[in-house]
Design a protein around this nucleic acid. Structure first.
Lengths: 210, 210
DNA sequence: CGCGCTATAACGAACGTTCGCTCGATTCAT
DNA sequence: ATGAATCGAGCGAACGTTCGTTATAGCGCG
């Protein structure tokens, strides 16, 4: 009965009910533990220790380890997709739209580096319906990026393999969690600039077919 | 009745003892299982089932699950590094050297897609000495790519952030295991061409620092 | 009181690992 | 040439631990 649907008695100002605050706290700790040890390597007891709650206490908030990961991943996807949508609302220049997409993605995930890994690294552990649901969200997000790149492509009359280009872009961005060091590499703005330069310069320089 | 060679052994090539062949077989099965279920998600019993050998039998060939992964990863790094070194021997043009690096990396890992994931995805599960050893190899491999890119950079008098550029290149290449489909995307040669175009076009188009 | 929430303690199953043993091939002394 | 001893390769069964999960009983607050 937990987690599959919002609490029935929650009113509009539900974001600060005790239940919601506790749930958010648990998701945060769980994300940190999954980040450190990976989903399979993390035990419910690790989560219990980290969040200072008993095993049974945790199960009051989610009904299985799988559903817990699912909630975390789903929330992250929805949040970043919402953010992207809102940021892109006021931009119409095709190149700037791609740059803005990169910037938004990096800003969100450099602000939540542990979330970045839990999304990127634990991407295929969920099976069946739960896995299919996450895969669907992922495909939506990919589509979003691909549409932006294709928009730029037709606007400028470029010729390149869209699929490989977009997936390469996602590769650059999603690989960051393995090396990013805020003291060495700049903030999201700097990084988005540099990665945007490489990617856009790369597709602009693409050879014309003949 | 002189004692020339003990066994006639039709398929001589006795450089591989039975032990070595069995070990290789086990490593291959283990790679496949780690690929499917991840290191933490794979149990020794899974490996036992896959390789058709008992639990205790497996432990005759390695002394712990961690050491098994270590052997696999170490062997892969050494093999691909050797391959890169040999291929680069005869090429002196800086751009072609970078392209050749990309091609070699892709050829090796598209020929061994499961290995690619076991290296990329299970990269930080090993701790202490074993982990440090793998991290050292990884750093060597990174250095290799970085030197090539830096060679091109100075040869052409380009200006860009080498660290971000090289790590982005590795991001593009190492992310491939999440999406590559041999029936849709080309073989290593065509993929190396496309990724090389994006990357090289990207760093060539880099703005001068002012 | 009743209800939302937490803690204790336990469940069976699965985990990585080890022990003692077997069995065929090889080696060696006679 | 042959029996005894050794060795490499592998097996079945079990070790103690940890896993995800749950039944149940108790607390504090409206």
């Amino acid at each position: 009965m937990t987690l599959t649907s919002p609490m029935p008695d929650s009113t509009a100002a539900s974001s600060d009910s005790r239940y919601d605050r506790q749930l958010a706290r648990i998701l945060e700790h769980a994300t940190a533990i999954f980040y450190e040890k990976g989903y399979e390597g993390a035990s419910i007891r690790d989560l219990s220790r980290a969040s200072g709650m008993s095993l049974a206490g945790l199960y009051y908030y989610f009904e299985s380890k799988e559903k817990l990961l699912h909630v975390i991943q789903r929330q992250l996807f929805l949040e970043v997709m919402d953010l992207v949508r809102e940021r892109l609302k006021d931009e119409s220049d095709p190149e700037q739209r791609v740059r803005l997409f990169i910037l938004t993605h990096l800003e969100y995930f450099l602000a939540n580096p542990k979330s970045m890994k839990v999304l990127s690294h634990e991407d295929d552990v969920l099976k069946d319906e739960l896995g299919a649901d996450i895969a669907k969200l992922k495909r939506q997000y990919y589509r979003c990026g691909a549409d932006l790149v294709d928009g730029l492509k037709t606007a400028k009359g470029l010729h390149f393999n869209s699929r490989v280009a977009v997936l390469s872009l996602f590769g650059m961005m999603n690989w960051i969690y393995t090396w990013y060091n805020p003291h060495v590499d700049g903030d999201a703005k700097v990084l988005a600039q540099e990665i945007g330069n490489v990617f856009l310069g790369g597709i602009y320089a693409t050879p014309a077919p003949f």
